[in-house]
Design a protein around this nucleic acid. Structure first.
Lengths: 244, 244
DNA sequence: CGTACTTTTGAAAAGTATCAATAAACGTGG
DNA sequence: CCACGTTTATTGATACTTTTCAAAAGTACG
C-alpha cells in the first residue's frame, strides 16, 4: 500500500519537479530494505561509523547532539519523506544521533546504492540535493532563532515552521496539526528549560495565539502568531530544484 | 602568483584527497573570473536570485541573516578556500547575505560551470560535497552552541573552532591567529550584545585563557580554554571524502 | 584635529534557569 | 476496570545571566 508511488519522499519531490519513469524506478529501488524502530532507541548514535542513511516512511524522528555536560540540543525533527543521515554518508561518521520520537518505519539506504542512483540519474541526484539544501536552510533558520529570538518568538516560530513542513506531506493545515512531541522535546530544540517552555506555552495560549495540548498544535490566530514570531516563510517558498 | 596549484581551495581539498591531473584541470577552469570586493558591501544580498557562487581566495567574509526587527545573526565566517553560496545555486535564490569583513578577492563560479564540472569529474563533485558537508557540520555545532552554551563557553568555543579552520589553510597555529573581526561581529555571531561580548572577553583574558586584542587572538592556555568551551574537535576530525 | 568607529565600564531592568512541589495523564499488570 | 508507578505538565519563589541604556575613553584615518 505504501508503494513508491505514494511514499512521502516521492510526494515531496513530485511537488517540485516532475520525475521520469526511469527516475521513479531508481527511486523505487532505493525503497527496499524497510525497517521498524521503536520510540526512544537511537537509530544512529553520535560517532557511529556506518555508511547508511535512511528515508523516513512514517513517524517522527529527532536528530540531536549530546554535550559533554549531558545536556542535549535537538537540531531538527524529521517527518515522513525526510532523509536521515545523508551527511554522515559523505563524512563517513555520524556527528549526531537520531532518536525516534514515536515508533517509526524507515528505509535503509546504503551509501553504495545512493552513489549508484546518483550516477544513473543526475536529475534525481539534483532533486535530492535540492531537498537537502532546503533542510539545511531550515537548520540555518533554526540557528537564527536561537541567536536572535526570545523564548516566545522562538516557540511561535518553531510551531509555525513545523506546521509548514507538515503541510507539504499532507499532515497539517492552517488550523494546526497532530504533534507527538513532549514539552521536553520543545525545551531541547529551543534551548530552553522545560519549565520555561511550559510558561511560554501558557502565554501563547492565554494570548489566543496557539494551543499546544493533548498531542495537537492548534493555531488560534495564525496571523498574529506569525507576527509574534517574525515568521517569514520565504526561506521555505522555493521553486523546485534547478534542473537542466 | 595565486595559481590553482596553491589556491586555498586546492590546498584544503588536497589535505584530504589526492586529485588527478584531470580533476585539477577542471578545478583550474573554475578559477577564472576573479573579482575584488570591498569590506562592508554585500556580495550577495538576501533574496537575490542569481545563480552564481564564489570561492574565496583571500580575506574574510561573513554570511548572515537579517531579522525583521533589524537585528542580524551571523551564521558563519568564510575564510580563504571556502565556498560562498553553494546552496543558493540549488535553491536558486539566496536565503542569506554575504558581507566581506575586509577587502577580499573571490572567484565567481556560475551554476552551469559547476554542473559541467560535476558531470565531468564525479570525484571532484564528491570532494566538494564533502567539504560542504563539513561546513554544514560546523553550522550545526554553532547551533548547538547557541542553544546550550553560556556566553563564556560560546566565545571560547568560537575562538577555538575558528582557529581550527584557519590552521587548515595555514593561517593559524596552536598559539593563535590574526583576526580582523570586531566585537560587534562576535556579538552577531554568538547571539550576544556587544557589551556582553566585551565583558566575556575580559573574563577570558583575566582568567588567562585567551586574549582577543589588536586584531589577534592568542590562546593563553589552550587546554583550559578547550575545557571551558567543552570543545570536542571530533566533528572536525574527518577523514577525507568517501570516494570510489 | 575632527569625525566615525570601536572598546570599555557602570547601573538598572528584563529574561530565563533552577529548585521544589503538586497535579494530571498514561501505561501496565493484577 | 482499577491501582500503581512513571512520565509529563503545571505553578511559585528565588537566583543568576544577559540586555539595555548611558557615557567615556581609545583608535583609525582623511
Amino acid at each position: 500500500m505504501n508503494t513508491v508511488e505514494n511514499s512521502p519522499l516521492m510526494r515531496k519531490l513530485s511537488a517540485f519537479v516532475a520525475l521520469s519513469s526511469k527516475e521513479l524506478a531508481v527511486l523505487a529501488r532505493l525503497h527496499q530494505r524497510r525497517k521498524s524502530f521503536v520510540a526512544g532507541h537511537d537509530l544512529v548514535h553520535q560517532g557511529q561509523s556506518d555508511q547508511a542513511a535512511y528515508i523516513l516512511a512514517s513517524g517522527w524522528v529527532c536528530s540531536y547532539k549530546l554535550q559533554p555536560d549531558g545536556s542535549r540540543q535537538i537540531v531538527d525533527f524529521q517527518i515522513p519523506g525526510d532523509f536521515l543521515g545523508l551527511r554522515s554518508i559523505l563524512l563517513r561518521t555520524s556527528d549526531h544521533s537520531f532518536e525516534p520520537v514515536v515508533d517509526i518505519q524507515a528505509v535503509e539506504v546504503l551509501a553504495s546504492d545512493l552513489f549508484d542512483a546518483f550516477e544513473q540519474t543526475p536529475r534525481l541526484a539534483t532533486a535530492i540535493l535540492w531537498a537537502a539544501s532546503r533542510d539545511e536552510a531550515m537548520v540555518v533558520e533554526h540557528l537564527v532563532g536561537l541567536g536572535q529570538r526570545d523564548a516566545e518568538a522562538r516557540m511561535a516560530h518553531f510551531l509555525l515552521e513545523l506546521g509548514a513542513k507538515l503541510v507539504l506531506v499532507g499532515l497539517g493545515s492552517r488550523d494546526g496539526y497532530d504533534c507527538p512531541l513532549t514539552q521536553y522535546h520543545l525545551a531541547d530544540v529551543l534551548g530552553l528549560s522545560a519549565v520555561h517552555v511550559n510558561r511560554v506555552l501558557r502565554k501563547l495560549r492565554e494570548d489566543g495565539l496557539a494551543t499546544f495540548r493533548n498531542g495537537r498544535v492548534t493555531f488560534d490566530d495564525f496571523d498574529r502568531l506569525a507576527a509574534r514570531a517574525g515568521f517569514d516563510p520565504s526561506y521555505l517558498d522555493h521553486t523546485g530544484p534547478l534542473l537542466k
